[in-house]
């Protein structure tokens, strides 16, 4: 464990806590894409298949449980909670996220470390996570005013993978055999997708105005 990875995990955890706070405090999920949340739940479920087989550390197991349970809880809230579900922008959240699932699956079947169920699912989860934010970014462009908590949620979600890239650079230079090109490329794509969001987030912060993504 190195400081970049720990910072990445904490930033990721913080983004989930901000989203839970927003939904719990405002009893609203307006501006949040259910499709992105469903994709994240699928990412965690396919990536953490080893939860019950490989024990790496208490930290690793606890964090996996937190990510799986929080993503499922958010999806449940947005689909079934009597109050929250009515605030979901159903007609705005129209990204065809099944294409992202299909594309990631094809990529995982073509490019993986080893052709085993676990490794193909792992690669699938890495590719899917790289594009899972797209429905959310499209929804942000459509919804006029982005509330602060939603903006902070997306910001921390983007920042966490940037920390992971620093972690991979660090591990590449400190551990002999460490060179995983799959998360490398997917992580760069993932962080790249946030580039314009980060730019407009920075402008809104600098000019102290509401975050507004150009359509």
């Amino acid at each position: 464990m190195n400081v970049f990875r720990f910072a990445g995990d904490m930033t990721h955890l913080f983004s989930v806590l901000v989203l839970l706070l927003k939904i719990y405090a405002t009893k609203s999920c307006s501006g949040i894409s259910l499709k992105t949340q469903e994709l994240y739940a699928l990412v965690f479920l396919t990536r953490y298949l080893d939860l019950l087989t490989d024990f790496i550390s208490l930290y690793n197991t606890v964090m996996k449980l937190v990510f799986i349970s929080s993503s499922l809880a958010i999806v449940w809230c947005m689909r079934a909670h009597p109050v929250v579900r009515r605030t979901y922008d159903k007609d705005q959240d129209t990204f065809r996220h099944y294409t992202l699932v299909a594309g990631s699956l094809v990529l995982a079947l073509l490019f993986h470390d080893r052709f085993t169920i676990r490794e193909v699912c792992w690669a699938f989860s890495i590719y899917l996570e790289a594009v899972a934010i797209l429905p959310q970014l499209v929804l942000l462009q459509r919804s006029r005013n982005v509330d602060n908590l939603t903006g902070q949620y997306v910001f921390f979600l983007g920042a966490y993978r940037a920390f992971y890239i620093l972690n991979w650079i660090y591990r590449y230079f400190t551990e002999q055999h460490f060179s995983r090109w799959i998360p490398w490329i997917a992580g760069l794509v993932q962080t790249g997708l946030y580039a314009d969001f980060f730019y407009y987030y920075y402008l809104s912060w600098k000019n102290n105005v509401k975050l507004q993504l150009p359509a």
């Binding site: 995990d9 990536r47 080893d50 790496i56 690793n60 470390d113 792992w122 055999h177």
Partner: peptide
């Protein structure tokens, strides 16, 4: 192919 180490990252 990659060595057999488990995925120790989240």
């Amino acid at each position: 192919t990659q060595p057999e180490e488990p995925h120790d990252e989240l």
